[in-house]
Simulated assay, not measured.
Amino acid sequence: MDAHGGRRGQAERDAMTVEIGYALVSAAFAAAVLFGAVAGPALLFDLPGPLSTVLLRLGLVVAPLVFTARVISVLLRFRWQARPDRTDRTDRTGPDS
């Protein structure tokens, strides 16, 4: 149910589904790119043992954090833009216009 007590329409449900899919795909892409940037050198080059271990572990820690942050930021932005009571100030003109 939405904020007005009624049921969500099919278009609203479809928009939410698309936004969730976008959030997951873009978060997976961002996490993979970051993991490749951080841990890639350890996988591609023959680095000393401790440095290789640190880079791999850092990549394994940072990638899920980026994934989670991306999903949350996309979904919160969608929720903010979908709020019907939000006033859009971009269409207002100032007193000096």
Score class of each variant (00 low, 15 high):
Asp2Ser: 05
Asp2Arg: 13
Ala3Lys: 14
Ala3Tyr: 15
Ala3Arg: 15
Ala3Phe: 14
Ala3Asn: 15
Ala3Leu: 10
His4Thr: 06
His4Lys: 11
Gly5Leu: 03
Gly5Ser: 05
Gly6Leu: 13
Arg7His: 05
Arg8Trp: 09
Gln10Glu: 11
Gln10Thr: 01
Ala11Ser: 06
Arg13Ile: 03
Asp14Arg: 03
Asp14His: 03
Asp14Leu: 08
Ala15Lys: 08
Ala15Leu: 03
Ala15Trp: 01
Ala15Thr: 02
Ala15Gly: 03
Met16Leu: 05
Met16Gln: 12
Thr17Met: 05
Thr17Ile: 01
Thr17Gly: 05
Val18Cys: 06
Val18Thr: 09
Val18Ser: 01
Glu19Ile: 00
Glu19His: 00
Glu19Gln: 10
Ile20Met: 06
Ile20Phe: 05
Gly21Asn: 04
Gly21Val: 03
Tyr22Glu: 12
Tyr22Lys: 13
Tyr22Asp: 12
Tyr22Leu: 14
Ala23Pro: 07
Leu24Gly: 01
Leu24Tyr: 07
Ser26Phe: 10
Ser26Glu: 12
Ala27Asp: 06
Ala27Leu: 05
Ala27Gly: 01
Ala28Pro: 06
Phe29Asp: 12
Phe29Cys: 04
Phe29Met: 08
Ala30Val: 01
Ala30Lys: 14
Ala32Leu: 14
Ala32Gln: 07
Val33Gln: 05
Val33Asn: 06
Phe35Trp: 15
Phe35Asp: 13
Phe35Gln: 05
Ala37Ser: 12
Ala37Gly: 15
Ala37Trp: 12
Ala37Ile: 09
Val38Phe: 09
Val38Asp: 07
Ala39Tyr: 08
Ala39Asp: 07
Ala39Pro: 04
Gly40Arg: 07
Pro41His: 08
Ala42Lys: 03
Ala42Ser: 11
Leu43Phe: 12
Leu43Tyr: 10
Leu44Gly: 02
Phe45Gln: 09
Phe45Pro: 01
Asp46Ser: 13
Gly49Met: 08
Gly49Ser: 13
Gly49Lys: 12
Gly49Leu: 15
Pro50Gly: 02
Pro50Tyr: 09
Leu51Trp: 10
Thr53Ile: 03
Thr53Gln: 13
Thr53Met: 12
Val54Asp: 13
Val54Ala: 10
Leu55Ser: 01
Leu55Tyr: 05
Leu58His: 11
Gly59Val: 07
Gly59Gln: 15
Leu60Asp: 13
Leu60Ala: 13
Leu60Ser: 10
Leu60Gly: 14
Val61Glu: 15
Val62His: 02
Ala63Cys: 03
Ala63Arg: 01
Pro64Lys: 07
Pro64Cys: 03
Pro64Glu: 09
Pro64Phe: 04
Val66Asp: 09
Phe67Asn: 11
Arg70Leu: 00
Arg70Trp: 06
Val71Pro: 02
Val71Leu: 08
Ile72Met: 15
Ser73Asn: 09
Leu76Glu: 08
Leu76Thr: 03
Arg77Pro: 00
Arg77Leu: 06
Phe78Met: 01
Arg79His: 11
Trp80His: 12
Trp80Phe: 07
Gln81Thr: 00
Gln81Pro: 00
Ala82Glu: 15
Ala82Met: 10
Arg83Asn: 10
Pro84Ile: 02
Pro84Cys: 00
Asp85Val: 04
Asp85Asn: 07
Arg86Gln: 12
Arg86Asp: 08
Arg89Tyr: 14
Thr90Met: 10
Asp91Thr: 07
Arg92Thr: 02
Thr93Phe: 11
Thr93Pro: 01
Thr93Arg: 14
Gly94Phe: 09
Gly94Glu: 14
Pro95Cys: 00
Pro95Phe: 03
Pro95Thr: 01
Ser97Pro: 00
